[in-house]
Each structure stands twice: as structure tokens, then as C-alpha cells.
Amino acid sequence: MPHRPRIPSPGRRTVLRGSLLVPAAALPAAAASAPALALAGRPEAAWGVQVGSVTASSALVWVRSDRPARMLVETSATESFRRVRSWYGPLIGPGSDFTGTTPLYGLPAGEQVHYRVTLTDPGDPRRTGRPVYGTFRTAPARRRDGVRFLWSGDIAGQGWGINPDIGGYRVYEEMRRLDPDFFLCSGDTVYADGPLQPSVPLPDGRIWRNVMTEEKAKVAETLDEYRGNFRYNLLDRNFRRFNAQVPS
């Protein structure tokens, strides 16, 4: 008789992997129609965090999620977060472009405050995204103690956007290293009426290359396109690090 090769029985891991490949048509109707957000993982704050409206005893923390989420802010006097205060923020969703703010009160004057923001699945508080960290200084209690601040002009204007070939918005990293108490943007924060081009020829023959998004390829005409102009700047790592550390 011809030899018939032995076919091994599937192991537990093989069965589990195979069970994840069942076609949607074979699923019950309720499962097949479940929202994608319920299956896509944990909420993430890929646009970083920001802090502003800082006084001697208060501040306002901002975050943007990639899906509906509950915002939690924790503050500490040290980077280790050994002892924390918790601030329960709002439920954020599409009505605010998945952005939310949480006010902090009762902070010590003239002190460094470390904070982290965690986004939680509204339907399951055990499902949390990766914390995003930042720090800032509260205003001094006495006026004579003084503060240091920076100011600048427009952002991403006249066709010059985020150029990855030169490291993006490098000026924000240089400003962050100066460790100011706050920042004033004395100019336009977005150019909603100034679309970008993928590339711009320079006089010396080089090519300036812009990171492109759908919203930055045309003049903004809708609320989402206008918001997309703000989201564009947050694609830059230097800009996000600056926002997390320097109040504005």
C-alpha cells in the first residue's frame, strides 16, 4: 500500500489563529455589524498633550483622542509619579473632534508640576491607552520673582509646512530647550486659506518637501477641514514635545 503521510491534528494556537480568520459572512448579524471602534483597540493620544491658562494655582490640560474616550489627568511633584492627584475629565467624542480639556486647581505656586493624561474606553474602564506625559511651572506667588517667556510669528505659512528632510519644525525643539515659563504665538497658528504643495523648488536647486494631508491640500471650506489645519501641526514631533512642556 502506498504510504500516506500523517496529518498532524491542529494545536490550540492553530485553532485560535484560524478562528480569527472567519469571514464576516459567517458571523452572526449582530457581530458583523458591530462598530469598528469596538474592535480597533484602545484609545490613543497620538497628537500629544498641551497645557495652557497657567496661573499660580491652576492650569488647563488638553488632549485629542483617536476615538471616544474618557480623559484622566494625574499630577505629581516628581517625574516618578510616586504620589499623584487625579483629575477626572470629560467624555470626549466626535462633537469636539475627539478633543477634551480638564482644569487643574489648587496647584502650588512657582513649582514644577508633572502631569500625565490617560484615555479610557468609555465602555470598559480597564481598557486604557498609553499615558502621555508633560510638565509645566505654575506662576510665582511674588511678582518680583519674574518669569521667562518666548514669542514667535506664524506657523506653516506661505507654503512652508513640515519638511521631514530637515527634521520638521526644529525651531520648537530649540525653544523647548530654553525652558521658558510660557509661549506667546504672536501670529497665525494655521493658514486655513493657504494650501500646501507636496514640493517647492528652491533658488539653489534643492527641493523643499512638505508633509501632506487631505486638509492641507486645499482651502478649508468645512469645519472638519478647518480642524484638520490644526491637526496638521501636531504631526510634528518637535511641536508636540514643545506643547507638552511649554504653556501657551
Rank of each mutant, 00 (worst) to 15 (best):
R4D: 11
P5G: 08
P10C: 03
G11I: 09
V15N: 02
R17S: 13
S19D: 11
S19W: 07
L20R: 14
L20C: 07
A24M: 06
L27V: 01
L27E: 09
L27M: 12
A30T: 09
S33H: 07
S33W: 01
A34L: 14
A38C: 00
L39A: 10
A40I: 00
P43I: 11
A45W: 06
A46F: 06
W47F: 07
V51C: 13
G52L: 02
G52S: 12
V54S: 07
T55L: 03
V61F: 05
V61N: 03
V61E: 03
V61H: 04
R64P: 00
S65M: 07
D66F: 04
R67V: 00
P68E: 10
V73E: 04
E74R: 11
S76M: 04
A77N: 01
E79K: 10
F81C: 02
W87I: 08
P90M: 05
L91R: 13
I92A: 08
G93Q: 05
P94M: 07
G95E: 15
S96W: 04
S96H: 09
S96D: 14
D97L: 01
D97N: 14
D97C: 02
G100Q: 09
G100N: 10
G100C: 10
T102G: 02
L104H: 05
G106H: 08
L107H: 10
Q112V: 09
Q112I: 03
Q112D: 06
V117E: 07
T118Y: 08
D121F: 12
D121I: 13
G123I: 01
R130M: 12
P131W: 11
Y133I: 02
G134P: 03
G134T: 02
F136I: 07
R137H: 12
A139K: 11
P140N: 12
R142S: 09
R143N: 00
R144L: 01
V147N: 03
R148N: 11
R148D: 12
F149E: 04
L150Q: 13
W151N: 07
W151M: 12
W151R: 09
I155T: 07
A156M: 08
Q158I: 07
G161M: 08
P164T: 11
D165S: 10
I166L: 03
G168N: 06
Y169H: 13
Y172W: 15
M175I: 02
M175F: 15
R176L: 15
R177E: 15
L178W: 00
D181F: 07
F182Y: 15
F183L: 02
L184G: 01
L184D: 08
L184Y: 14
S186V: 09
S186E: 06
T189D: 07
Y191L: 06
Y191C: 04
A192P: 00
S199Y: 06
S199D: 10
R206W: 01
M212L: 12
M212I: 10
E214F: 05
E214A: 15
K216C: 13
K216W: 08
V219P: 00
A220L: 12
T222S: 15
R227Q: 10
G228P: 15
N229V: 08
N229Y: 15
N229L: 11
R231K: 14
L234M: 13
D236K: 10
R237Y: 01
N238M: 04
F239Y: 15
R240Q: 14
F242K: 12
F242D: 14
A244I: 11
V246D: 05
P247S: 04
P247M: 05
